[in-house]
């Protein structure tokens, strides 16, 4: 009797196993259940490497050094606030909506052909890889696909966004190296400046040179010392504390850059610090990019807001008069 019971139980188990097998083999899993949507990395403090690349072959590697500063893999200085923008995106990124069922294949193909790839490492280990595609039609979301080192690539992309802002996530992750490089031209503590020499090639009579020795100043006009207003000199030196360029040249082709280099500069500034390091820049007028008129209706030849500056390492950068005007003085400014 007891063995009959056992046989019945065994038969039921076999029957159920068959039904389960049939069910599992027939059941098509929904894409959404397999899709990976957990893009966020909450612990951004432990992120130490970020690799950016795109389908055009650009590649950038950012790493955090021991002093917690982010640099490029070759040690180049990068603008820290841009990396903070990355970290903020890693922390707060969230799903705006799933991709429409009918659009999944199409979006997957688009991401496959054009994407930016962001690889996030924590303590040297790859934790997540984002594939950032195009923005949605209304530009409030971005198509993104997640890859996990353990689970692999998600079969389905998602429309992602940062809930605290409107806009496109992809724009934060530029693969243009120049966009990240530090933009400092002058970052001097006034006490560290030994000498500043400003040359105005078109009006050499207005040139000046300031020499500092233990906070004692001498101001020269073409080798002749003049009587000057000390307060104005101090104020002028303070102007060298934080001078940045806007961006590297993106518009001028190389022949035009060469022509510019061979033309007469508007200003030449040479700064020598207490360690005798020389930082010399040349500033040039910049032509207007498109037809512009002044208040009296005259056609403008030069840009009223921006200028070209060759930095100390001979890189052409675009700068603003708003930043440089305080440095572009002449000898008359300092006279008593």
């Amino acid at each position: 009797m007891k063995s009959l019971k056992t046989i019945t139980i065994l038969l039921v188990i076999v029957g159920l196993s068959f039904v389960i097998y049939q069910t599992v083999s027939k059941k098509k899993s929904s894409l959404s259940t397999n899709a990976l949507s957990d893009f966020a990395v909450k612990d951004t403090a432990s992120i130490d490497i970020i690799k950016l690349s795109d389908t055009k072959g650009n590649k950038l590697i950012f790493q955090r050094n021991e002093s917690k500063k982010w640099t490029l893999s070759d040690g180049s200085c990068v603008q820290q606030h841009l990396i903070v923008g990355f970290l903020e995106a890693f922390k707060y990124i969230s799903v705006k909506s799933p991709v429409g069922e009918n659009a999944v294949d199409n979006i997957n193909k688009l991401i496959l052909t054009t994407h930016k790839k962001v690889e996030i490492y924590q303590k040297g280990q790859l934790v997540k890889t984002w594939y950032i595609g195009n923005p949605t039609q209304d530009h409030y979301g971005t198509y993104m696909l997640l890859s996990d080192p353990e689970k692999g690539k998600s079969p389905e992309p998602f429309i992602m966004h940062l809930p605290n802002m409107y806009g496109v996530v992809a724009d934060r992750f530029s693969t243009d190296r120049k966009e990240y490089l530090c933009s400092e031209i002058f970052t001097y503590n006034p006490k560290d400046i030994k000498e500043i020499e400003l040359t105005i090639p078109e009006q050499p009579e207005l040139n000046f040179k300031i020499v500092q020795n233990n906070e004692e100043f001498i101001v020269y006009n073409n080798t002749k010392p003049i009587e000057f207003d000390t307060l104005k000199v101090r104020k002028y030196l303070l102007g060298y504390k934080k001078i940045h360029f806007t961006n590297y040249n993106r518009t001028l082709p190389q022949p035009s850059v060469d022509s510019l280099r061979n033309s007469t500069p508007m200003y030449i500034i040479k700064v020598i610090d207490n360690n005798n390091n020389v930082n010399k820049i040349k500033a040039y007028k910049k032509g207007v990019d498109y037809q512009l008129y002044d208040l009296e209706g005259r056609l403008l030849v030069y840009d009223q807001d921006n200028l070209w500056v060759f930095t100390n390492d001979d890189k052409l950068t675009k700068c603003q008069y708003y930043v440089f005007d305080k440095l572009f003085r002449d000898i008359n400014y300092f006279r008593k």
């Binding site: 007891k2 063995s3 019971k5 056992t6 139980i9 065994l10 039921v12 188990i13 159920l16």
Partner: peptide, 13 residues
């Protein structure tokens, strides 16, 4: 042993 199989079988079901 039959009782044990029955018990385990019941749990499996």
């Amino acid at each position: 042993s039959n009782s044990l199989i029955n018990y385990v079988g019941f749990v499996v079901i």
